[in-house]
Design a protein around this nucleic acid. Sequence first.
DNA 1: TCTGGGGTCCTAGGACCC
DNA 2: TCTGGGGTCCTAGGACCC
Length: 415
Amino acid sequence: MTGLVDCNNFFVSCERTRNPALEGRPVVVLSNNDGCVVARSNEAKALGIKMGQPAFQIRDLIDAGAVIALSGNHLLYRDLSIKVHAIFHRYAPSAIDYSVDEAFLDMTGIPTVALREIGRNIVEACDRELHLPVTIGFAPTKTLAKIVTELCKKRGRRVGILMSAADAEGLLDSFPIGELWGIGRRLAKRLYSSGVYTAGDLRRSTRSAVRDSMGVNGEKIWNELNGIPCIELSHVGRDVQDSISETRTFPEDVIDFDFMRTKISIYASSCARRLRAMKSVCGRVAVFMRTNRFHTDTPYLRPGTEIVLPVPSSDTQTIVAAALQGLRRIWLPRVPMKRAGVILSDITSPEALQPSLFDAPSQSASTSELMRIIDSINTVPGAPKLRLANQLTDLRRPSGNDGYSSSFQAPREGR
DNA sequence: TCTGGGGTCCTAGGACCC
DNA sequence: TCTGGGGTCCTAGGACCC
């Protein structure tokens, strides 16, 4: 058996731990730039507010006080995420952290009576210690556990158990295909057109038909619905990630190269700092820009490129230089850009590094020491105390919500 | 007028190897 | 005129998740 434990309306619940007045009221948490809804209380869901809905579409409700809209406080969410996962691990013999607010629990060999007991203990501990509501579903596979948890939430229950896939018939027929784990908007649309509307419909399809139309992932979902566990979470709990990125949508379109260069430099150095925190190096630095995809009167452009470093590195100066080299390559004069970002990939540990036969190692002992000292000074969250000079152009122009002071008066380039 | 951010995985096609 | 087969690796794009 597998358990899935999931925090209810996580970001909203986090806010409620700090402000009990939010209890029982329609609350949403908004994304960067207060752009769209990324978390909703049950009361907000009841008003018909959708996940990802643009904030301007519910502006009237907010202004009228019918909905409380909060900007995200991600330091708080991270802190509570760590604490709630610690509770999951305390009560489950083996837990795999799956997301900021979810974990899968390995319940192999646990008797049914103990399942319910463990489930209740976790729910009560999260309530008592953190005031965070959680829901738990147990089932023979991860996909079925996901379904059980979702149905529990809809029915206001906190613990649910599905002993075998054979018992799932009615459950699956009531579960819309578009809400199934692994089925997104595109696949759902295709499935509707072939007459598959529920998880039950999918399970009654033949394995080969599912394989042909949905590939290996579809086949895995089909297996899991039939009680055959086959989804491995290879990427979770891994010590190094595949990629590190920092990307932003700007409040206003950007045409100014200096402004864009400043932003790319800031994103790249932030990625480099996170890379060093993982004690890793990267071999590739990608940079991209996007025009506004909602403007139908102009073409949607998304130039991007990738720089391969001669020697993998975690040095801020090396990574920023590569990102800016990429930016110069893809820059389009006079084309307004709405979004941009930096992605580091080909991440390895420096010990595993194969040094180049002919080139001098790019990361000397002295730059490593410099980075160590800079990181130790920049430990406080928010705007770093020490940064590269090319991040110090005038930021009075559109700045986005990245923690950097917009009133900072800085020397122009060359000083 | 206003529309998020950080990830992973799969697939198809091209380049290349022996 | 006729021109192999079995692979790997890389990349871009698409799809998905929370």
